[in-house]
Amino acid sequence: MSGLNKDHGKLIHMLHDTQKKFGYIPAHSISQISGELKISESEIFGVLTFYKAFALEPRGRHLITICMGTACHVRGGVQIVEEMERKLNIKVGKTTANRKFTLETVNCLGCCAIGPVVVVNGKYYSNITIKKVDAILKEYQESE
């Protein structure tokens, strides 16, 4: 397969770029990438649905990721999620109507010592409690 697959390693990078540009992976990008890298659309779809980093629907401006790994879970991660859902009035995996926030969970971020962990747009918030949720949201609600 050597000859054919020389460029196949670029797939993840291209998906990342697309995700960054649009906030999700639009259908037309899949066919574009398919033509470029000579990989079938179904295969690309298989890859992008495997990773949580890619979304098929537009995400909000701010992506909130809550860790549900074992350590965060036992320290109250579930409650953080519930609080976020209440505050944003959406379920996990969804985006607020004003397209400002998308709420997602992740299985482990690898920084168990500082859990429960919430990540917003790549910025890590450690030792989160229900009380701190409001402050985090405020930070982004005000910024445009």
Binding site: A27, I39, S40, E41, S42, F45, G46, T49, F50
Partner: peptide, 20 residues
């Protein structure tokens, strides 16, 4: 060489499927 189907989604949701 058609690759019309692929594994899509992950974990307990994994299934054989096509694009969209």
């Amino acid at each position: 060489g058609a690759s019309a189907v692929s594994f899509v989604y992950r974990g307990s949701e994994a299934v054989v499927g096509t694009v969209f």
